[in-house]
Write a protein that binds this DNA or RNA. Structure first.
Lengths: 269, 269
DNA sequence: CGGTTATTGTCCACATTATGGACAGTCGGA
DNA sequence: TCCGACTGTCCATAATGTGGACAATAACCG
């Protein structure tokens, strides 16, 4: 394998290599969404050997956690995963806290508003509110998953993380950056910019002609929990309006943070 | 499972013991719902050794698929699972097909109607419609999961399976039957009854004083896909009404089966 | 169509990984 | 303070999972 930091601090428990690998395959497949991914991309993203990935995927298919699409031969998350998910309450504390505030903010701003969480080394869009302005950027759907660092939300979240961890993630995601036309250096410098500015911007959105602005939301413990993002056509987000939008986002983020602090428990930590 | 085309023999692929074990731990935890389960119950249900379960659970916690509740020390399905589930379209073909029919049937019958699928060796309640009669049995919620064989839905599904497979499942679930006050012999004879009668009945419901009746729903390939269940207080389901209810359920089940056959693809197999 | 490449699937010798018996904490009740 | 029930850890051992090399498809073309 590739060498990384020597047992920095956190996750020691060993004797479960296979399980960890299987989970990372699952996460990669989740990023493939409904259509799934060809085996080759799983190979590249996980940096595992072909027989290993093949065996893992095959077992996951047998167990029903993964499906193989007849036509394309691609592998995707299977029916069993949502079934397992039913064991949890339907709405997380974060979603509950953000619900009303997002509604108001998206009405106020008029553009599409996204709530994005971090999950492992990915960002995951968990909520979306469509604004009133006639042109809306809808390309990112709830459930969209991408490597941390390639979207403005990802950059924002990484900017709010301890620098060392952000670097670790950037390194881990390196093999996945190519397909999003970016690389580790670019990502790191975008993170530095975001840290300086206090929010994340993406001038060339993942969709051509769009621009995104993201603020981060922290848990009471100071760890970033999510990002709040506005996406709009580029021309609608000039310098003047950028300031307004940033203020609205920052305000909303603080309100959500306050709600997370109040009740019994915060989400992740 | 049922592959009638090629390779009738089923799940050979080995070299993934650890992954399979981890998944079975996950499924057991899913049955624990929001509150989760103490480690001990996981031990019993999986029949794995303590160190093994402990290690698996610990890794799953590190990876975010499992959470440990601060207070109780119980383990439960973690936030990451619903996050993975977002990679799939929100409604399965089965749910879509059943939606309207369930609505009408529950209005017609007046008691609570459940849609239950098989997932591995468990049943899982995926939909519930509350009827109009003033006394309703609501104890089973969407997401409720229990070993195949302990509920009328489970018995119905097993009755619709090839006998050999039903026996296999009954054997596999044996260690879990005790906590539901049943055992393998009882389950097998209930299955035989259901097969003879054409539907599953549970005189002493899992909740005291209730009675349940279930019909099965098959996929176009003839494999049982789900069960349709009515639960009501015992006194409301005398012999006369039982017949009426069974007719309504059977009718509804056929309609759902027809819808599954029509569109592009059937759900599980 | 044969020929060439890209992708997926399989085999098997080997050592790393995962296993479980035995033991050590931890917590709560009386 | 002792007891009992549960949870967590150690470590010698072998069985499990690994990956290099090879085989089988599928896809692409001239």
């Amino acid at each position: 394998m590739d060498s990384r930091t020597i047992q920095a601090g956190s996750e020691p428990r060993q004797g479960a290599q296979a399980i960890r690998r299987a989970l990372s395959v699952l996460r990669v497949l989740a990023a493939g969404g409904e259509n799934g991914l060809p085996l080759k991309e799983v190979l590249q993203a996980t940096r595992l050997s072909r027989p290993t990935v093949h065996r893992i995927v095959h077992v996951l298919v047998e167990e029903g956690l993964v499906e193989r699409h007849q036509r394309s031969g691609r592998y995707a998350i299977g029916t069993q995963v949502p079934e397992l998910a039913l064991a949890r309450p339907s709405r997380s504390p974060l979603l509950a806290a953000a619900d009303e505030i997002m509604q108001r903010t998206s009405e106020l701003i008029g553009d599409t508003l996204f709530l994005t969480v971090r999950t492992g080394n990915d960002t995951l869009c968990v909520d979306r509110r469509i604004g009133s302005y006639p042109i809306q950027v809808l390309s990112i759907a709830v459930g969209a998953r991408r490597p941390l660092g390639v979207s403005s939300a990802g950059v924002a979240i990484m900017a709010a993380l301890p620098a060392a961890e952000a670097r670790r993630i950037a390194a881990a995601n390196e093999p996945r950056f190519a397909s999003y036309r970016t690389d580790r250096q670019t990502v790191l410098s975008q993170i530095a910019d975001a840290r300086r500015r206090g929010y994340g911007v993406r001038e060339i959105g993942l969709v051509k002609g769009t621009k995104s602005i993201s603020t981060w939301i922290k848990t009471p413990s100071g760890y970033p929990a999510a990002a709040l993002t506005i996406s709009a056509v580029r021309t609608r987000l000039g310098p003047r309006r950028e300031q307004e939008v940033v203020e609205a986002l920052t305000e909303s983020a603080s309100r959500i943070e306050a709600m997370l602090a109040k009740p019994d428990m915060a989400p992740r930590s």
